[in-house]
Design a protein around this nucleic acid. Structure first.
Lengths: 227, 227
DNA sequence: TAGATTGTTAATCGATTAACAATC
DNA sequence: TAGATTGTTAATCGATTAACAATC
């Protein structure tokens, strides 16, 4: 019963929108710690994270009561708590699949290591790449996927493969036992319900900005026409 | 009055959540077109885009009435309409600032070109990089930013600079007249209200997946404990 | 105690979804 | 006309926010 209650309070009840912001709070708390700041109010932390302080307090309330009324939050305590709930107290092993243009950049991205992850394996299907060394890791054959996942205890895979190969690679990754996938290929992937899938669609990000550019120029036209 | 009404119907009233999905619909429609499919129902298009068909129809209804009852949507018509509303009928010039690890990968990303964007300039502060050629573009000095923005009519900037430099670079980009920014640096940037800012936080994406991994292992523990 | 700040309540807002009348 | 599918309504759900009692 104790276990059940703690799990419910810890993670089952944290809204998705809150989870997404916890990562930002953790990063900002790290920056405060670097500046030797040990205590922070919700107002200050919210400002640094670019959110409303009511939202910040609501978000933190899902984790429990870690603040001190009249004082604020202890940076260290809150950092530990958020890291624990995000599961980044253990360094997680990540497999990066697709070692092309984008894949090589991701392999060398320092932010993964500093924020709780270890790129434990690089895989590709290209004979040209297999066996070569990228960022001190030997690129392995995608055919060895299942073995690599088991050996390295991989729970998260990052897909940086061409769109045409993505669903096939995704199926193989799922079959190998991976339950979380971050997809950079611009395709809608189908995964079983027990697998978590997130995507980063770079061109879509620009298209969303483009929409707002359009809106801004239309507004300017009207303002100009009316002047 | 005509202009005012058309703008209101076109873009002012499209919800943010819808805008973000329009980019996906556009991509899926392109794939259908490649397969010579000329008509598609909301049910089919929704399935291909990974959303509920009611949501798809609601999203499209913000653009106007482009479907035919009893038949579906004409792929070409819908493609043109979404492209128009996203402002990608004109190819937009993008400046990429920061030509390091990630920046070089983004400079070579084909998906930008194929989905309405042209990387028109690469800029960096490093003397080692300035003057060198990356992807057939000469890397220019960030000091020349304002000139480049004017010459190339840049409306969108992509920031792939180190976290420590991001706010400074952002301020300069805004001062040069850029009104849309896509930020890859893991920092919260402050921009004036007239500037649109989106961010891609790669490590945060993994941390969100990590949270769910945690939840899954906790659930497995309970199931195991109760078995 | 007085001042400050949290954690929570409740109202509001925006997004999702099922259901179905309109209509091709 | 009969069948199919859109566009819209209305109910529901989840997220945001202001306000403030609780409490350090």
């Amino acid at each position: 019963m104790t276990v059940e209650r703690s799990v419910a309070a810890d993670s089952r009840t944290v809204p998705e929108a809150t989870v997404a912001r916890l990562a930002t709070y953790l990063r900002v708390l790290g920056a405060l710690s670097d500046r030797s700041i040990t205590t922070v109010s919700s107002e200050e932390l919210a400002a640094a994270a670019g959110v409303n302080s009511a939202k910040l307090r609501k978000d933190l309330s899902y984790l429990g009561s870690y603040g001190i009324r009249g004082v604020g939050y202890d940076v260290r305590t809150l950092t530990d708590e958020i890291a624990r709930i995000l599961g980044v107290t253990v360094r997680r092993a990540v497999a990066l699949i697709g070692v092309g243009n984008l894949g090589q950049a991701l392999a060398g991205y320092d932010g993964f290591a500093s924020r709780g992850f270890r790129i434990a394996a690089l895989l590709d299907a290209s004979p040209t790449l297999i066996g070569s060394t990228v960022r001190e890791l030997v690129v392995r054959d995608i055919a060895e996927l299942e073995q690599v996942v088991t050996e390295q205890e991989i729970a998260i895979a990052v897909l940086a493969v061409p769109a045409s190969a993505a669903q096939d690679v995704c199926d193989r990754v799922v079959a190998a036992g991976v339950t979380s996938i971050l997809n950079f290929a611009p395709v809608v992937l189908a995964v079983p319900a027990h697998v978590d899938l997130r995507k980063v669609d770079l061109a879509a990000e620009l298209q969303i900005l483009s929409f707002h550019e359009n809106r801004k120029s239309a507004a300017a036209l009207i303002a100009g026409g009316m002047a």
